[in-house]
Amino acid sequence: MKIILTFYRSFVVASSLITIACLTTISINGLKVLPVMLLFKLVTLGIIILYINLYKKKEFYYYQNLGFSKLTLWIFTFGIDLILFVLLIAVVI
C-alpha cells in the first residue's frame, strides 16, 4: 500500500485541486451539476494518466522493479481517487 501511495503522490496535488474545484461548484450550484462534475473529474483523471505516462514514464521502472505493474498502479490509485471524490461529495451535499 505504501508503494501505491508513493505513486499516488506524483499526481495527488493536481487531482486534489480538481476535486476541490468540483466540490466547490457542487456546493454552490447544487446536485444538478453533479453529472457534469463527475464527467469533468473523469476527463481530468484521463488527462493526468496521459501526462504521467508521458512525462514520468521513467519512474514506472522503480515500481515495476518492486513488482507493481503499470496497470496495478493505475487501478489502485484511480480507485482511491474516485472513492475519495465520492465520499467528499457525500459530505458536501
Binding site: 508513493t6 506524483s10 521513467k58 519512474e59 514506472f60 521502472y61 522503480y62 515495476q64 522493479n65 518492486l66 513488482g67 505493474s69
Partner: peptide, 17 residues
C-alpha cells in the same frame, strides 16, 4: 507482468522518483 523475485532491470536512465 514480472515478479521482482524473478527479474530486476536497471534502465540506462534515472528511474527513482
Amino acid at each position: 507482468a514480472r515478479k521482482s523475485a524473478d527479474l530486476m532491470y536497471l534502465p540506462q536512465f534515472g528511474y527513482i522518483p
